[in-house]
């Protein structure tokens, strides 16, 4: 998928009409992530029913990739069990950060359309911003995640502020 197609068919739609982009009334957990060098910011709220992620909402600002990736993520994980959410998270990270040639299509579903981001090294952390917030939420980590200091990202894809 070339850049225009990726944006036209996937990203712009989610950027302009982000799904699940309303705050929750009674979230169980909230987590935040930022990309200080870009200005991307995502606040994510989750509510669980038993083991299932019953509700998810986010508020975000930033580039189209960061916001679309978060929007798509909320669709993909809503209604899933904690274990399923972690599987999707791992599969997405493998596809986008590690550049897996054969991503886990079953776990990812529509998210496979984001595979092209792996070929845009400077944008990988944009795509990961919402996902890092999700991981922090699952781990109940209250401190805001800073993507520029996320050591799980390869140095070439991290990049501090200039």
């Amino acid at each position: 998928m070339d850049l225009k197609t990726l944006y036209r068919e996937v990203i712009v739609d989610h950027y302009k009409k982000p799904r699940n982009s309303t705050p929750l009334d009674h979230p169980d957990v909230e987590a935040k992530c930022k990309n200080p060098s870009c200005g991307d910011r995502v606040t994510l709220q989750l509510r669980f029913a038993n083991d299932n992620l019953a509700e998810i909402g986010f508020i975000g600002v930033g580039c189209a990739i960061s916001q679309a990736s978060t929007s798509m993520m909320t669709q993909a994980v809503k209604g899933k069990s904690r274990e399923e959410v972690r599987q999707i998270m791992t599969a997405f990270r493998e596809m986008v950060v590690e550049g897996a040639e054969q991503p886990d299509a079953e776990a990812l579903g529509d998210l496979v359309t984001m595979q092209g981001i792996a070929k845009l090294p400077a944008r990988v952390k944009c795509a990961m911003c919402g996902w890092s917030a999700l991981e922090a939420a699952l781990d109940e980590q209250s401190e805001e995640v800073d993507m520029d200091q996320d050591t799980s990202m390869p140095e070439a894809k991290r990049g501090g502020g200039m």
């Binding site: 850049l3 944006y7 060098s37 200005g39 930033g62 189209a64 990739i65 944009c126 200039m162």
Partner: peptide, 21 residues
């Protein structure tokens, strides 16, 4: 459009600009 998306599209058409602060 956000500056990073702008730079991405410009790069796609051979134009090198910088995006950020």
């Amino acid at each position: 459009a956000h500056a990073h998306d702008v730079a991405q599209f410009l790069s796609d058409e051979g134009v090198a600009v910088r995006a950020g602060h």
